[in-house]
Design a binder for these strands. Structure first.
Lengths: 149, 149
DNA sequence: AAATGACAAAAAATGGACTTCTTGTCATTT
DNA sequence: AAATGACAAGAAGTCCATTTTTTGTCATTT
């Protein structure tokens, strides 16, 4: 076994057409990791993972242009992280792709992150619901110190 | 303490204007849980949680029309679930709102769910990378049984 | 086999006009 | 105070025409 997957192999294994692979390479979406001396493509392991991910996204009706932007973000995680892929998930919904890494969720496109637990809101409301504090002493202390006023 | 929060209180506690509360009630987005004998609003605990959630979504530039649809989905979880709010989170990104409940992620709007771990893709590729099976016997068995052909 | 180029069909994005929805403000009623 | 109604500005959604992107197919080259 040599250095990587040929175009044909990559196509078969990813479910993408050779035409797509060519176009994607030409437009910089997924470029094969190596080349042969003769200038032929050799796709690497990470390439294949990316190609399969892209295929899934396409199947989920995510447009290529969106995938283009998302993969840029995904790529940052893929080769980099220590526990690389195990803790990494994609959530696809509507036309948004999220990258989950542990507890955090990033919009693969914007990099924006915003998660908030409902329990937090409920706790806030619950606190407001009882202006009479349970811990009387603390309340008194606050009044004395003028924390609330 | 009586039955609930007045409009004014709900407004103050949620950060929404009375105008918004009125309009939202009129259009059925969030209706106060009870009414007084005189026909005045009394917002309940869950109402307040929902109002605060809505306020946050608005602050995140989610349009009211989208919130309208999302809350319908969120509402299903809120009063229903056993471990109600503790395991519930919202992820807001771009113009999509996801409801997280345990391991699952639902598009709050469509209800669609699709999560996939990258590790899975990597494992698939890894398997393909070695056409020589590690378990020789199994491979032979498959050939014998014609499973692959 | 793989890369490249050319042509065309299909899919997706963009931009603008138009409509609907939200919200503030103010007056009136209950 | 709260509800209701009226007016208007701004925000957001919809629809349609136009442009760009993506992909298949086929021929040619390396």
């Amino acid at each position: 076994m040599q250095s990587g997957f040929t175009r044909q192999q990559a196509s078969t294994l990813s479910g993408l057409s050779c035409r797509q692979l060519d176009y994607w390479r030409k437009t910089g979406l997924v470029s094969p990791q190596h080349q042969t001396a003769g200038g032929h493509s050799r796709y690497g392991f990470v390439d294949l993972v990316v190609l399969r991910a892209a295929k899934r996204l396409l199947d989920a009706d995510i447009s290529l242009q969106r995938i283009r932007k998302c993969l840029q973000s995904l790529m940052r995680f893929l080769p980099a992280s220590e526990h690389p892929l195990a803790e990494l998930s994609l959530v696809v919904t509507g036309d948004v792709v999220l990258v989950f890494h542990g507890e955090r969720a990033f919009d693969a496109l914007t990099g924006q992150e915003w998660v908030f637990p409902i329990a937090e809101l409920a706790a806030e409301v619950e606190k407001l619901q009882q202006p009479q504090p349970r811990q009387g002493e603390l309340f008194v202390a606050e009044k004395k110190l003028g924390v609330r006023a």
